[in-house]
């Protein structure tokens, strides 16, 4: 959850000191980031796999055509 207070206080230059608690929050943010990007990456890899499969099929068909022509 975005911290509204920090947003307001940041706008006025009000500050917080880096501590273990802050770092833990960043780690949590990082883990959420990785979970989201995992899904994106997974989907892109599936698309890429489909493309590679099609490429292979096309190559096979080309070879078949050549064989037929012979």
């Amino acid at each position: 959850m975005e911290n509204v207070l920090m947003s307001i206080l940041r706008a006025s230059g009000i500050i917080n000191i880096m501590n273990q608690e802050v770092l833990e929050n960043i780690k949590q943010l990082y883990n959420n980031f990785i979970k989201k990007t995992y899904l994106i990456k997974d989907r892109l890899l599936k698309i890429k796999k489909d493309i590679i499969k099609r490429k292979e099929e096309m190559q096979i068909n080309e070879i078949k055509d050549k064989i037929d022509q012979l």
């Binding site: 975005e2 917080n16 802050v22 980031f33």
Partner: peptide, 22 residues
């Protein structure tokens, strides 16, 4: 992915904005 990255930066900035003071 770009939005997710920017979201990470924004939220990290919110909680560490002045960590440079550390």
């Amino acid at each position: 992915a770009g939005i997710t990255r920017r979201d990470f930066i924004k939220k990290a900035a919110l909680i560490t904005g002045a960590a440079m003071l550390a």
